[in-house]
Write a protein that binds this DNA or RNA. Structure first.
Length: 767
DNA sequence: ACCCCCCGAATTTTT
DNA sequence: TTCGGGGGGT
């Protein structure tokens, strides 16, 4: 409550304004922001450019709805993508509505809210309300079983591949029966949909769901039970959606169902910051908003409070090259500032060295390390910087490494907990049945599986029966008996014992702790520490199921980072953040824009990469430094690259070019960059191995030749396309194939080895 | 049950 | 190059 004193919004709400004066919380908003706050009824799309005060608008809008008594906190549905965003909103709202309400019950991520709804109506889709939410590791292991059960070669058709397909279908809310035949064909000669169906069956049997199901199944429920849907529609008087440009089809359908006739929906987003197309986000959702919600108001927030004019100018100039956008013009009242710098380096090492030097110089000049960030396209780029930082002793932090709950020892512990809460969780059982070793090898595990299948029960249940028979070797049987009896005991204590106590006992009695104590490897101590941390982190939860729900939905553990360190992260990870000084290394063709984005998604892929560049530049408050290296080692081979086309797209007025003379490896002929690749003469072990491979006649795993031209992708001129339908072509990556379709410079080619792919015409050669 | 070697893959990542 | 998974040998 003390916070009320520091928070003008909270104060304003606690003390209602005089009738005539506008409420205090509207003070200090610019006209567009104020409009977005006050337009509470009917559909509204707030196009919030980078740094335009989006979060402030969102929270103030909520405050406004509450202060004007249009709805109670529990009648507002407010969805975000990440837990971080949800947490931030909750904190700010918490101040506003104080101790009156615990918090907003329906403020959370799509998945958390989906899970909440699904648990209430689980029986309608054949689940129990204590269902497990699988992470992608479990998901993949389960898929592998499904693939093997169908006698499909799981080398040729990997679980990973199938998972990607199923994710895609679920992102579009497609049930197995709705999978387009062509896409089903993408797996094991048409078995895709069949595998998907089998997987869903297995999930049901395990009383488990995956992330996609949290939305797909709730949509199913809404459609099958109109009374339930009507209930939620009545409850949710106002809907608020953050980062709307990141929604996928399933999320869109889910929102549309919940918005109902009333359409009091407000979506906030920025089409120019849509960078998650590859995981199903549909920019179209935001581009199409007016059609979806007739009479929608579109409000643009264009005044930027973050960056200098040069930074905004650079970013705006770049993003203007995109076709598919609603269009905004950011402006600022801040003073000039410095131009964005552009530097070229001989290789990645030199680039890292120079950036590290700049960081040290800036630090000496009084800048804080935590005000600086290096934003890379791909995480392998981080290594060079880490090495350099370690060398120089510059403190740094990497954001986005392997996360706490993904560590092996944590997963093992969690599998024990899951099995206590939900005995049907066979995946958890398989994980820990012989971990730590208790003599239950392959043979014994096969026997358990067989018994479970025969009786149609879970592995744990089957094990209970099995230890009473003599179908298993004595050693395995006694090991299994001890395990199974432990579970019986733990489960019996679930209700009576505190969950942290229980957890500590489980870790001890299972032997996990002992195993690590006996482990002499250097990592063991850290792992023990992690387990302790795990138990500690359970304290803030009410019970074990509550904790597990948190774990499956929030894969990260909170870390309070107040130390003065340079931040190293990917561009994707940087969205929503800001730094005083930002370094953007690796702006090279093939790396950024990434070759795969171009190969797989053509123009759309290029535009998404460009948005990523835009996100990168707009993270900077005061200084942005772009750089590229002419030579870079990837997968053990040296490759030569040319500067990213994005470099050229930034208006000269906003850039200071510091490129030195390193043009030797590049040529520029009339709008077309040519690149080559050469192998180094390094006498590294890998190089020797490659030579040996070549000598022995084996194919060398060599990266595809990068050949890009600066203008080609943007063209829509059909005459630019040299190949015709039906022609036989060669592609560096996919090999030989026949052109099935020509669309401007985009082709659909039916490749002999890899099937139909969409490729850019300029990447294929006629044969 | 464990170890070693070979092979393949190596953008981005939340939930 | 580096990592992890799987197969095969001990």
């Amino acid at each position: 409550m003390a916070d009320f004193d520091d928070d003008p919004l909270a104060r304003a709400i606690a003390r209602p304004p005089a009738p005539s004066a506008p409420p205090r919380y509207l003070e200090g908003l610019n006209p567009a922001q104020r409009e977005a706050v006050e337009a509470v009824d009917g559909p509204v799309l707030v196009l919030a450019g980078a740094g335009t005060g989006k979060t402030r608008v969102l929270t103030t809008r909520l405050a406004h709805i509450l202060a004007t008594k249009r709805a109670w906190p529990g009648q507002i549905l407010c969805v975000t993508f990440t837990n971080k965003a949800a947490r931030e909103m909750k904190e700010r709202i918490g101040h506003l509505i104080g101790g009156v309400v615990e918090g907003m019950q329906w403020l959370g991520t799509f998945h958390a809210i989906g899970a909440k709804i699904l648990r209430r109506h689980a029986e309608l889709v054949g689940l129990k309300s204590n269902f497990t939410i699988l992470d992608d590791d479990d998901q993949e292991r389960l898929l592998k079983q499904v693939i093997q059960a169908a006698n499909i070669d799981d080398k040729r058709w990997t679980a990973r591949h199938l998972r990607a397909l199923i994710d895609r279908w679920k992102n579009r809310a497609q049930a197995p029966s709705e999978v387009p035949a062509g896409e089903s064909h993408a797996f094991a000669n048409g078995k895709g949909a069949e595998m998907y169906a089998a997987y869903q069956e297995r999930l049901k049997a395990l009383n488990a769901v995956d992330f996609g199901d949290l939305l797909v199944l709730t949509i199913q429920i809404f459609k099958a039970a109109p009374d339930i849907l009507a209930d939620y529609r009545r409850r949710f008087v106002y809907l608020l959606v953050d980062e709307y440009q990141d929604t996928n089809v399933a999320q869109y359908l889910w929102l549309k169902l919940l918005a109902g006739e009333r359409h009091n929906i407000c979506c906030v987003g920025d089409d120019d910051q849509s960078i998650y197309g590859w995981r199903g986000a549909e920019v179209d959702n935001i581009l199409r908003f007016e059609k979806d919600f007739p009479g929608a108001r579109i409000i643009r927030l264009e005044q930027n409070y973050r960056s200098t004019p040069h930074i905004l100018g650079a970013a705006s100039g770049l993003i203007a090259a995109n076709e598919a956008r609603l269009g905004k013009t950011l402006f600022t009242k801040r003073g000039e500032g410095e131009k964005v710098t552009l530097s070229g380096f001989w290789d990645g090492e030199e680039e890292a060295r120079s950036i590290a030097d700049d960081i040290e110089a800036a630090q000496r000049a009084g800048e804080g390390l935590s005000d600086m960030a290096i934003l890379v396209r791909a995480s392998f780029q981080m290594r060079e910087f880490e090495e350099r930082f370690l060398n120089l002793g510059i403190p740094y932090r990497v954001i986005g490494g392997p996360r706490f709950y993904e560590r092996q020892e944590i997963r093992d512990a969690l599998a024990y907990f899951r099995l206590i809460v939900q005995g049907d969780d066979d995946l958890a059982f398989e994980r820990i049945v012989n971990k730590p070793k208790r003599g239950i090898g392959d043979v014994a595990q096969q026997a358990i599986h067989k018994a479970a299948r025969a009786a149609g029960v879970s592995l744990l249940r089957a094990s209970f029966a099995l230890i009473e028979t003599d179908e298993m070797a004595a050693k395995a049987r006694s090991g299994l008996r001890r395990l199974v009896e432990s579970f019986a005991r733990w489960r019996a204590n679930l209700e009576t014992q505190s969950h942290t106590e229980l957890a500590a006992i489980v870790l001890e009695e299972s032997g996990l702790i002992e195993q690590l104590q006996n482990d002499r490897s250097p990592e063991a101590a850290g792992r023990l520490e992690n387990l302790k941390e795990l138990v500690r982190s359970m304290e803030e939860f009410e019970n074990l199921p509550g904790f597990l729900e948190h774990v499956s939905l929030v894969m990260a553990v909170e870390q309070n980072e107040t130390d003065d360190k340079v931040t190293l992260m990917t561009l994707h990870g940087a969205k929503g953040l800001e730094f005083d000084r930002v370094f953007l290394p690796g702006w090279e063709e093939g790396l950024f824009p990434h070759q795969r984005a171009l190969d797989e998604s053509g123009l759309a892929g290029l535009e998404e990469e460009r948005r990523l560049a835009y996100v990168g530049i707009t993270r900077a408050k005061r200084l942005a430094h772009i750089s590229y290296a002419t030579n870079r080692r990837t997968h053990g081979l040296w490759q030569t690259a040319i500067p990213s086309r994005f470099v050229e797209e930034i208006p000269d007025a906003h850039v200071e070019r510091r490129e030195t003379d390193l043009g030797a490896a590049q040529t520029y002929d009339g709008g077309r960059w040519a690149t080559g690749m050469y192998e180094s003469s390094y006498s590294s072990p890998g190089w020797r191995r490659a030579q040996a491979n070549a000598a022995s006649g084996r194919a060398v795993n060599r990266a595809p030749l990068i050949e890009v031209s600066a203008e080609l992708i943007a063209t829509n001129d059909p005459s630019a396309t040299l190949v015709q339908r039906g022609e036989r072509v060669f592609h560096d990556k996919f090999g030989y194939g026949r052109v099935a379709q020509v669309d401007g410079n985009k082709l659909v080619v039916d490749f002999e080895t890899s099937g139909e792919k969409r490729v850019i015409a300029q990447f294929v050669k006629r044969t």
